[in-house]
Structure formats: structure tokens, C-alpha cells
Write a protein that binds this DNA or RNA. Sequence first.
DNA 1: AATTTTAGTTACTATCCAGTAACACTATAT
DNA 2: ATATAGTGTTACTGGATAGTAACTAAAATT
Lengths: 211, 211
Amino acid sequence: MGMRLKVAKEKWNGQITGTKEQRSAKLRAILNVAARSFLEKGYHKTSLDDIAKLQNVTKPTLYYYIKNKEDILIQCEKIAMAQINLFIDTIEKSNDIGFKKLQNFIAGYIDLVMDDIIRCHIQHRGQMKDPIAKEKSLDYHRDIEHRVRKIIAEAIADHSVRNCNPTIIAILLFDSLNGISAWYRKEGTVNKEDLKKEALSLLTKGLVSQN
Amino acid sequence: MGMRLKVAKEKWNGQITGTKEQRSAKLRAILNVAARSFLEKGYHKTSLDDIAKLQNVTKPTLYYYIKNKEDILIQCEKIAMAQINLFIDTIEKSNDIGFKKLQNFIAGYIDLVMDDIIRCHIQHRGQMKDPIAKEKSLDYHRDIEHRVRKIIAEAIADHSVRNCNPTIIAILLFDSLNGISAWYRKEGTVNKEDLKKEALSLLTKGLVSQN
DNA sequence: AATTTTAGTTACTATCCAGTAACACTATAT
DNA sequence: ATATAGTGTTACTGGATAGTAACTAAAATT
């Protein structure tokens, strides 16, 4: 399996890896810079030449790793979905009461929406041109929403969460948390732990004074 | 002031108006179909020919009413901002306690995010290519957010809302409410009054059971 | 050493689409 | 009636950019 090893090692963030790992590392590097650029400038305002330049390669090289531009979105989504589902798995497996599960979900999901690839997925899901890819993307999201809906329903059943409409509440929960992915910046003025604390108390205790 | 009156009357949704009103009605009609199309297909996937076709005119005619494609976004924003600011005016003017003001804001804002032009503004703000327009758009939004922040701070001061960080809470409030604009459909399964009720109780009482 | 696979290049095509130039019609004002 | 201003058309230009063809080269396989 041949490649220009020395050059590749230097160019692609210097990791010395096996060849297969190297290939997927390069794909991952493409997805990462693409995701960041899509978030900053938008999908349509980011050209494949832009992405290529950020990797010090030319556009046709990208086609060695991706099928087409939209494939970047699809691959990002795949990674994002795996991570999110894995995260919800751990929450489901726990023996916490429903309310505690929801608290853990909120806190953990805020960590997830700081990741560029997950943010890219959140902001571009369902926007694929290819109708099959689009439908799959929307299905993915419905699945996730459904899992959270189930956790909410469970929490209502064990009386740790007040009676409410789990469908609507799940959507609103995602609205508020996904919204974070659009504005949050590590370098920004809002501290991550403060954000977590405020989001948790808003969504669990609400605004009303406890007097 | 000349125009093909009969034709125009039929084409542009049949309203018989004075000529000046007719002109701005046509502009408004353009903005409305454009906004709807931007929301459904996205800004970049909507061509000016698409918009023109929806109005039974040709593309160059649009340029009689708008400066360029981006100008549609800017004009929608202007209308949206006026409406939102007017709405916040009425809330500020009331003599309600802070908490009641926030309840009114949440309920009223949900009404606003059902309007196509406001939804278009919410989903495209800050995405203008022209740096001046972009900055203005972000400023607009900062202003609105600041006004809500002030209402929250006031509500904390009068002890009708629990102690929290008004800056972060204002952002999270907008995240959850603006999120609605992305998915809500009049024809959809979620009832508007249910949505309002659930959003109000989530944001004011939180999830936790009241036992 | 010869061959194949992987990785990359330059140079091109094809398409889409925003924006414009030049021209045509209609109604009102003079 | 005729000029004029407002409204609209057809036909075009120009720029951006997704995707491809054809080629080069290095490394691994044989």
C-alpha cells in the first residue's frame, strides 16, 4: 500500500500512524476543517477549493477521500450520530431516576454541542439535496428525539418530573440545547460551566422564584 | 403614474389599491414568497427566477422592487425587527411584575415566530455577505436580546424571578423560542396552544415535579 | 526490477445563476 | 396627441465553482 509517507506525515498534522489509520485520519482532518468552515462561513459559501487549501492539497485530492461535497455533511452526520447515540446509551443504562437522567442528558449534551463535527451536523441536518440522504438525516434526528421523549415519559411515570407533553418538551429541550451550538465559542465571554449551570436550572427549575 | 392596472390587479392577489400602496404591496408580496421559499429550500437553493416565477413575473422585474438578492433578507429583517421591537414596547409599557412580563413575552413571541417574514429573519440573520449589512443585522439582534435581558434583570430585582444570570438566560430563552421557527408548521401535528402552554411551563416552572 | 496501488497534480468542462442592457407597453399628465 | 414615468420583457454577460480527465510520482507488493 503506497503513499508518500514522509510528506504525508508532515502535512497531515504530523501523526505517525499505520497506513489505514492514516487514511481515515486524513478523512477526519478534511471533515474537521470542512465542518469548521461550514459553521463559520456557511456550507454554500465554503468551496471545495477552500477546504482543499486548508489541508494544503488541491481540490481533486479531496475526491480521493469523499464522494462529493454533500458527502462531507453525510460523513459528519454519521460520526455525530454515533457519538450522540453512544451518549444516550450510557444514560439509559444507568439506574438513576428519570429526572436525574434528564439532568445528566442536559449536562452531557452541552458538552457534545461544543464539538465542531456535532455542531456541523446540528446546523445542517436535513439539508442534503439527495432526497434519500435527506430522509435518512431526518430519520436519524427523529430517532434521537424519540429516545429523549422516552426518557421524559419514564421520568413522568416515576413522578420525578411533573406531568407534561413529552413530545413537545423533547423538541423544546433540543431547541434550547442545539441553539447553543450556533453561538457558543470557546474563546467567547460565556463560561462553559456557567452555561451548564444556567441551562440546567432554567430547564429543571424554570424562571419562577422559589419563594 | 402608469402601470398595467388590470393585469396588475389580477396578478398581484387582486387587491385594488392606490398606486403607492400597490407598489409596496408588490414588494411585500415578493418578500413573502421569497421568505417562504428561503425557509423551505434555503436561501442559496432559491434562485431569483424561482421567486419571480412565484409572482408570475420575470427576474429583471424583481430588480424594480429590490436592490439585489441579499436586499430581500435585509428588507425582511427590517420588517421583522419593527414588529419585534413594537411587541417588546408594549410589554415594557405594562405595569406587570417582571415575571408576568416574561410570561407575556414568551407567549407573544411564539405568536411572532409563526410569521414567515419573522421566521426568515430568525434563520438568516447575520448571514449577509455585505459586511456592513451583516454587522447591522447582528447589532439588531443584540439590541433585542439586550431588551429581554433588562426585563429579566428587572424581574430578578422585584423577586418574581429567581436569581440567575440574565445574559445567559436571555440567550437560552431565544434559543428555545427561535428554535420553534425552524420546525413549526400550521398544518403539523403540534397544536399552537399546546405548544404555548408547554413552553410557558417549561421555561417558568421547569421540568422538576412540584411535590 | 517490474507491477500495482495509493496519493496527488494540472488543466479543463459544464452548469448554475446574479445581475444588466436594451427594448416595449400602458396610463396619466400636459 | 404626445411626452413621460412606471412596469415589464427578452436576451445576454460574467463569475463562481462542482466535478472530471488525464497524467505523474512514490511506495508497497511481487
